[in-house]
Nucleic acid binder design. Structure first.
Lengths: 340, 340
DNA sequence: AATTATTCTGAAAACGCTTTCAGAAATTCT
DNA sequence: AGAATTTCTGAAAGCGTTTTCAGAATAATT
C-alpha cells in the first residue's frame, strides 16, 4: 500500500487536494518558509492521504542538491571497512543526508569508475575510505566538493584526512611483546607496492623498529618477512621464517588476517601458540576473539572513525572547519601471548 | 582535470560548440537515433573538449529511468553477503545499470527505511538480499518494479526468489558425518524467531533430521541446541551440550560462525578437534580455511547467486522470464572431521 | 524531372520540483 | 483610521535532459 503511490502522485495533485499552490506545498514540505497553520495541515493531510513521495530527481534538479553523501569503500566484506561504514551510517542517521555507497574492490580501475559514478550523481559530500586514488585527483575534487579521506593520510590535505596513528600502534604492539619478556620478535609486514595506499603498514613496521631499538636491541632483518595482507601470505611467511632457521619466540603481524594464516602454519608444524610462540595481530577483526587461542591484537576504532568522518563532511558542508583527531589503536589482550 | 568540468557544462554548451541543436546532442549521446556522421563527430569532440558529464537528475527526470538497480543487503560486513554483492557487481558490469546499495543492518526499521530510500530513488530494479521485509510488502512492490529476492524463499513469489537448497545442504552435511562413522551427531541450529527470515536455518535442521532417520537412527532432542547464528552463541551451545552429559562425537552447526564459537568452547574444555569431536559448518566463510584446524563446511555459491540475481532483474526489466535455478551447497572437506 | 520514401534535425513541450518576484492579506504603528 | 510593516501566497521562470512532432534534406522511384 504504502508503496502503491510511488509512481504517480505529484506535488500538483496534493496542491489541488489541499487547495493551495504547488509553491506552498513545497514550502511546507521542506519548511523553507512560514505557511499559515490551516494550509500547512491541509497539505500534510493531502500528503498522507495520497501517499505522496517527492520525486528525488526533480528535487535535486531544481535545488542543485542531492542530499547524499558518497561513500567510496574498497571492500564491503572487510570487517575493518565494515566498521567504518557502520560508523558513517550512525553519523548520518539524524541528518537529512543519505549515504550512497560504491565499492572499489581494491581495483584501481573500478575504484576510479566508482568515484566518477559518485561525482556524477552529484553527491553533496564525499567520504573515501582508503584506496589508491591519486592524491592529485583527490585534491582537485576537494576544492569543489566536501571531501574526507578516512584511513589514509593525504599529506596535501591535512584538513581532509582522518587516520590512525599506525606508528604508535606498531610501537605499542611490539612494546607489549617486549614487556612480556620476548627478545626475538618477528614482524610480518607487507611491501610498499603503492607508496601511498600501504603507508599504514609501513608505519606499523617503523613503530616495530623503534620499539626494538628503544629496548636496546638490534634490528635483525632475518626477523622480518613480507606478506600481502591476505591470510594465505601469513602461512607462507611463517614457512619462510622457519626455513631461515633464526629462532624467535613471538610474531607481530601487520594485520589480523596474516596472523590467522601464521597461526595455521604454526599449527601445521606442531608449534603451539602461545606456549612455543606468542602472536599479536592488528585490527581486531570479528574473528580475532574466536581464533584458537583468541588473538591478542591492536584494535582500530573503526566505527568511531566512520562517525567522525561523517560529522566532518557535514561540517565541511556547513563551511565549518572539521575536527579531525588522530586516532589511536588500543591493545586488546587475549590469549595468544605468554610471558617468555 | 577530468573532474573539473562537473559543475557547469550542459548539453546546451556542447550544442553551441558543435553547432547543432540540443536534441541532436542528446541523440548522439544516447544513440537514440541516427545522426549524420559529421555532426556526430563534432558533438563527440565538443563533449571531450568540454569534459561534459550529463546531469543524472535531469536525465532521469526526463526519461523516467534511473539506470540503477537497488541492492538491499543486511550487513555489508558478512562474508556471505559480500559474496553476493560481489556477484551482483559482476553481473551488472557490462550493462548500463549501476547498483545502488543500502544496508538494513538486520534491523527491521532500518531495513524498511532503506527499502523506501531505494524506491524513492526510483531504482529501475531491486535486489533484496535476505532480510525481514513482510512478504506482503515485497509482493506489492514486485507488481510494479522488477524485484528479485536472494537467499530467501518467498512462497508467493516463486519467479522472483532465488535461494539455496538448504534442506539438501543440511542433509548432505549430516550424511557426510554419518558416512564417516559418526552416530551421535549434534546439531546447533537457531530458533525460528521470524518465521520467514530464518527459514533457511530451519531447512538445514530438517535436512539433518531426515539424514539421521534415513540412516536408521533415532532423533535425540538432547543432541540439538539452539544458538542465534553469532559466534558467541556457538560457545554457549557447546557449554549447554556438555552440561547435558549426552555423549557425542560430531557437531554440525547451521552456520560457520557458530562453528567457530563451538570450536573455541571445545578448546577451552581441552576437547580436541577432530580427534575427540568432529565439526562441520555451513557457509564456507573466508575464515573457515584458517580455523585451527581448517573447517570442513558446506559452501554456498554466493557470487554465482549474486550474478544470477543481477541477470534476473535485468531479464525482468526486459520483460523476459528469468531463469532461477535452485542452488546447491557443496561440501568442502578440510580437516575438522575424522573417521569415527 | 517530378514524385514518393527515407533520413535527419530543430523547436518546443514535457519531467516534477524549487525559488524568485511581486502582489495580497494580516499586523503593527502613529 | 490610515500608513507602514511584516507575513503569506500564487504565478512563473528555471533546473538540464529526453522525446514527440513536423518540417527540411536527401535519396530512391517511376
Amino acid at each position: 500500500m504504502t508503496i502503491e503511490a510511488h509512481r504517480k502522485t505529484t506535488i500538483m495533485d496534493i496542491a489541488a487536494k489541499a487547495n493551495v499552490s504547488p509553491s506552498t506545498v513545497s514550502r511546507v514540505l521542506r519548511g523553507s518558509a512560514e505557511v499559515a497553520e490551516a494550509k500547512r495541515t491541509a497539505v500534510m493531510q493531502a500528503v498522507t492521504e495520497l501517499q505522496y513521495r517527492p520525486n528525488i530527481f526533480a528535487q535535486s534538479l531544481a535545488s542543485g542538491q542531492s542530499m547524499t553523501i558518497g561513500v567510496l569503500t574498497q571492500n564491503f566484506g572487510s570487517p575493518f571497512y565494515d566498521g567504518i561504514l557502520h560508523g558513517i551510517l550512525l553519523g548520518l542517521e539524524k541528518t537529512e543526508y543519505w549515504p550512497l555507497f560504491a565499492d572499489g574492490r581494491w581495483h584501481p580501475e573500478i575504484e576510479l569508475n566508482a568515484f566518477h559514478l559518485l561525482l556524477d550523481r552529484r553527491v553533496d559530500g564525499l567520504i573515501v575510505i582508503g584506496g589508491q586514488l591519486a592524491e592529485e585527483t583527490l585534491r582537485t575534487v576537494a576544492q569543489r566538493t566536501p571531501l574526507i579521506v578516512v584511513a589514509r593520510r593525504i599529506a596535501a590535505l591535512p584538513d581532509n584526512s582522518l587516520y590512525l596513528n599506525n606508528f604508535a600502534g606498531g610501537y605499542n604492539a611490539t612494546r607489549y611483546l617486549l614487556d612480556m619478556g620476548h627478545r626475538d620478535i618477528v614482524h610480518i609486514t607487507a611491501p610498499n607496492v603503492n607508496p601511498i595506499a600501504i603507508d599504514d603498514i609501513e608505519q606499523r613496521y617503523q613503530g616495530y623498529q623503534q620499539a626494538i631499538l628503544d629496548a636496546g636491541l638490534q634490528l635483525d632483518p632475518r626477523l622480518v618477512v613480507e606478506g600481502n595482507l591476505q591470510q594465505q601470505s601469513g602461512v607462507l611467511a611463517v614457512e619462510m621464517l622457519l626455513s631461515r632457521g633464526r629462532p624467535f619466540s613471538a610474531i607481530f603481524t601487520a594485520n589480523d588476517q596474516m596472523a590467522f594464516g601464521a597461526r595455521l602454519a604454526l599449527y601445521r608444524r606442531g608449534i603451539r601458540v602461545p606456549e612455543d610462540v606468542s602472536l599479536v595481530g592488528f585490527d581486531d577483526e570479528a574473528f580475532a576473539p574466536y581464533m584458537v587461542p583468541p588473538l591478542t591484537t591492536m584494535r582500530q576504532p573503526a566505527a568511531e572513525m566512520g562517525q567522525t568522518a561523517a560529522k566532518a563532511v557535514l561540517d565541511l558542508l556547513n563551511k565549518k572547519k572539521p575536527n579531525l583527531p588522530l586516532f589511536e589503536a588500543n591493545l586488546v589482550v587475549r590469549e595468544s601471548v605468554t610471558r617468555h
